[in-house]
Computed example of a mutant assay.
Amino acid sequence: MVRWEPDAAGRLRRAAAELFVERGVEATTVAAIAERAGVTERTFFRHFADKREVLFGDGVRFTSLFVDPVRDAPPDASPLDAVAAGVRASAAFFPDERRADSRIRGRIIADNPGLQERELLKMDAIAASIADALRERGVPDPAATIVARAGVAVFSAAFVAWLREDETREMGELIEDGLRELRAIAS
């Protein structure tokens, strides 16, 4: 009998990434991921709805990194300042020790149009949630939608830069650069 090992979800993520790189997403089965991780398929489905979900993780938690600071911003904060607080907070999700795994994930997504679409939909949902939080603060449309999408664009540009092989700056620095660019464009 196999001895229980901790962090089944982490082992499943690592096994899936390895197999996606080796075989491609479409050729990789849940059974193969579970076998490589040393768990059963049943355990896989306790953690993830499908094999693609391994790459996207906890969307609610990730979205809250952006949205909670917008809701918690001081009442007199401008819409851009509130969104900037959310974009800054997202940097905590990307410490430098996650960069290598994030680069692998990025390559897997770049090689699969279906995963690219899912990534875009995820970021679109985050922008919509940020816009909702701005509306709760009394920011009318189209301003709420525009500034929310601008914040997501800053995050996305910083993330793409952070994934580059030659990039050494931290995610927070890249976000600050993007926010400065946005403010310069807006002024």
Rank of each mutant, 00 (worst) to 15 (best):
F44A: 04
F44C: 01
H47L: 02
F48C: 03
A49P: 06
D50C: 09
K51W: 05
K51Q: 11
R52W: 12
R52I: 06
E53K: 04
E53C: 03
V54E: 02
V54D: 03
L55I: 00
L55H: 01
L55K: 02
G57I: 01
G57W: 01
D58T: 00
V60S: 14
R61T: 11
R61H: 05
F62V: 08
F62C: 00
T63Q: 14
T63A: 14
T63N: 03
T63S: 13
L65Y: 15
L65R: 11
L65S: 13
L65K: 11
F66D: 05
F66G: 12
F66N: 07
V67R: 03
P69G: 04
D72Y: 00
A73I: 00
A73D: 05
P74I: 03
P74D: 15
P75A: 13
D76W: 09
D76F: 02
A77E: 12
A77G: 07
P79Y: 01
P79K: 02
P79E: 04
P79M: 06
L80S: 09
D81A: 15
D81W: 01
D81F: 02
A82V: 00
A82C: 09
V83Y: 08
A85M: 08
A85C: 08
V87N: 15
V87Q: 09
V87P: 11
V87S: 14
R88L: 08
R88S: 15
A89P: 08
A89N: 15
S90V: 06
S90D: 11
A91W: 13
A91V: 13
A91L: 10
A92F: 15
F93N: 10
P95Y: 02
D96W: 10
E97H: 14
E97F: 13
E97I: 14
R98C: 07
A100L: 10
D101T: 14
D101N: 14
D101G: 14
S102M: 13
S102I: 07
S102E: 11
R103M: 13
R103L: 09
I104K: 07
I104R: 15
R105L: 08
R105F: 01
R105I: 15
R107I: 09
R107G: 09
I108W: 01
I108N: 02
I108G: 00
I108P: 02
I109Y: 05
A110H: 10
A110K: 04
D111P: 00
D111Y: 00
N112E: 14
G114V: 05
L115G: 09
Q116I: 06
Q116V: 10
E117W: 11
R118D: 11
R118C: 08
R118Q: 13
E119H: 07
E119F: 13
L120E: 14
L120R: 12
L120T: 10
L121W: 04
L121F: 13
K122S: 09
K122P: 01
M123P: 03
M123V: 10
A125D: 13
I126H: 04
A127H: 13
A127R: 09
A127Q: 06
A128C: 06
A128Y: 05
S129A: 15
S129E: 14
S129Y: 05
I130V: 15
A131V: 06
A131K: 11
D132E: 14
D132C: 04
D132A: 15
A133Q: 09
A133H: 04
A133R: 07
A133T: 07
L134F: 07
L134K: 12
R135Y: 06
R135K: 08
E136N: 00
E136P: 05
E136R: 15
E136L: 12
R137F: 02
R137H: 10
G138H: 08
V139Q: 14
P140W: 07
